[in-house]
C-alpha cells in the first residue's frame, strides 16, 4: 500500500490529539489525546521502517540503516506506559484534592 495513506492517517491522528489536548479540559481526555499523538508517531515509524526495508530488499536504496526503526516504537510504548502510570496517579491525586479532573483548576502554581 502506498506510504501516503499511512502518513495521512498519522497526521489525522496527530491533529485529533493536538486539538483534543487544546480544547478539552478533562485531564483524562487530554491524557488519551496525548496517547493518540504518541501513537500517531509510532504508526509513522512503523510505516517508514517497512517502506525502507522494502526499498532495500528491492535494491532501490543503499543498505545503510542496520538497526530496525521499529525498535523505537517499543521504546515509545514503554515510555508511554511509564507515563500512564505516573500521569494517572497524578490525576487520581488531583481528583482526591479538588474533586475534579478539570485542568483549569490546576493553576495553583501561579503566584
Amino acid at each position: 500500500m502506498d506510504i501516503k495513506w499511512y502518513i495521512e492517517l498519522a497526521v489525522a491522528l496527530f491533529s485529533i490529539g493536538v486539538i483534543g489536548v487544546l480544547i478539552r479540559r478533562n485531564a483524562i481526555i487530554i491524557f488519551i489525546c496525548v496517547e493518540l499523538m504518541l501513537n500517531a508517531a509510532n504508526l509513522l515509524l512503523v510505516a517508514f521502517s517497512k517502506m525502507h526495508a522494502t526499498a532495500i530488499a528491492a535494491g532501490k536504496a543503499a543498505p545503510t540503516v542496520v538497526a530496525d526503526a521499529q525498535i523505537f516504537v517499543f521504546f515509545i510504548m514503554v515510555v508511554a506506559a511509564a507515563e500512564v502510570a505516573v500521569g494517572l496517579a497524578i490525576i487520581v491525586m488531583m481528583y482526591r484534592n479538588v474533586h475534579s479532573v478539570d485542568v483549569n483548576f490546576l493553576n495553583r502554581l501561579k503566584n
Binding site: 489536548v21 487530554i30 485542568v103 490546576l106 493553576n107 502554581l109
Partner: peptide, 8 residues
C-alpha cells in the same frame, strides 16, 4: 498563566 491549555 498556570493554565495547562495555554502552555500547550
Amino acid at each position: 498563566s498556570g493554565h495547562v491549555g495555554n502552555y500547550v
